[in-house]
């Protein structure tokens, strides 16, 4: 994998190198910079506004000041947010829910993709088509039947050595996790990626008597770093951002995820500064995570795409 990327990148620069360089390069840089501003300014605006009182947010709209930390800068909005919403609890819930969804999602979807990519299964083309077909169903249209349905599902309660069956999943962590583990797009991405790994590798292992699960665990998965990272991101984002679902299935405040907290600020007068502060705080963890892993994130998504 790594080899392909470097060679193609080198080829790109050679290709560019043959062209008259300076003006083109300059133009491209200008274009890239303008684009960067377009993408980053609204987000800067959010962070900067979170430091200002409402009246100043509106007053600053007319000038560059909207993007600059000038005027009455304070963390007042942040302290207000903390007194209004149990944000730490919400953050912890979201971290937990997202992390578990990601880990189980990686396992379940890669296993399915492995089977469909590597093994001879009767009707596997139909199975794959059916899996992909689930992508066309927007969650919003299924939410209500699903609420009723999850409330009928059983659950095994384990208290030490005491096993009891309970029924109904409402108002739990699991109802925010389990329905979102299996994901057609994740299966599809893993499937794509596994297909790009030469079959000779696992055939050799088969000759040596390795079982399917060993091949999955010892050969394919270690080679699939980029696919794992991609699926992790694509599972993490919707889990972190989930909104409609927890509104419908969560009643206890201590189980709520971060996005529901936004609703707290629509009561009474809409406090824009507080909303900006809250959304900044719930966006910041992902941004930091993203910037920290920027290189592997972007490169990994890039290398998971369809091979030409």
């Amino acid at each position: 994998m790594a080899t392909t990327t470097t060679t193609s990148a080198r080829a790109q620069s050679t290709a560019v190198g043959k062209r008259p360089r300076a003006p083109r390069h300059f133009l491209a840089t200008v274009a890239k910079t303008v684009l960067a501003l377009v993408f980053v300014l609204p987000i800067i605006f959010m962070f900067i506004s979170s430091l200002k009182p409402d009246s100043q947010i509106f007053a600053d709209l007319g000038s560059l000041k909207a993007f600059l930390p000038v005027g009455h800068i304070s963390f007042a909005n942040y302290t207000d947010v903390f007194s209004r919403v149990p944000i730490l609890q919400f953050l912890m819930n979201s971290v937990g829910i997202s992390a578990v969804t990601v880990i189980l999602g990686l396992l379940v979807n890669s296993l399915a993709a492995f089977a469909l990519s590597r093994m001879r299964i009767r009707g596997k083309r139909i199975i794959l088509t059916l899996i992909i077909a689930t992508l066309i169903v927007p969650f919003e249209t299924l939410a209500l039947p699903l609420v009723w349905w999850v409330n009928q599902l059983p659950w095994l309660q384990i208290n030490g050595f005491d096993l009891t069956f309970t029924h109904g999943w409402l108002d739990t962590y699991r109802v925010q996790i389990i329905p979102f583990i299996a994901n057609a797009f994740s299966v599809y991405l893993f499937h794509q990626y596994f297909d790009s790994i030469p079959k000779e590798l696992d055939e050799a292992a088969r000759m040596d008597g390795a079982g399917w699960f060993t091949i999955y665990r010892k050969i394919l998965m270690p080679l699939s770093g980029p696919a794992i990272a991609t699926v992790a991101i694509l599972t993490f984002l919707p889990a972190w951002n989930s909104y409609l679902w927890p509104i419908m299935v969560i009643q206890s405040e201590n189980l709520r995820p971060v996005m529901v907290g936004v609703e707290y600020f629509y009561q009474l007068n809409v406090a824009w500064g507080q909303i900006m502060a809250y959304t900044s705080m719930i966006t910041l963890p992902i941004l930091v995570l993203f910037i920290a892993f920027q290189r592997s994130f972007v490169n990994s998504i890039a290398s998971t795409g369809v091979k030409g």
Binding site: V147, N151, L170, I247, M248, Q251, S252, E253, Y266, Q267
Partner: peptide, 21 residues
């Protein structure tokens, strides 16, 4: 006591009613 945000309160109640909760 369990408190809900107002904007989605009715949805929470209706969902709970559908589930008998």
């Amino acid at each position: 006591v369990q408190a809900f945000p107002q904007a989605s309160y009715n949805q929470s109640v209706v969902a709970a009613a559908a589930a008998g909760k």
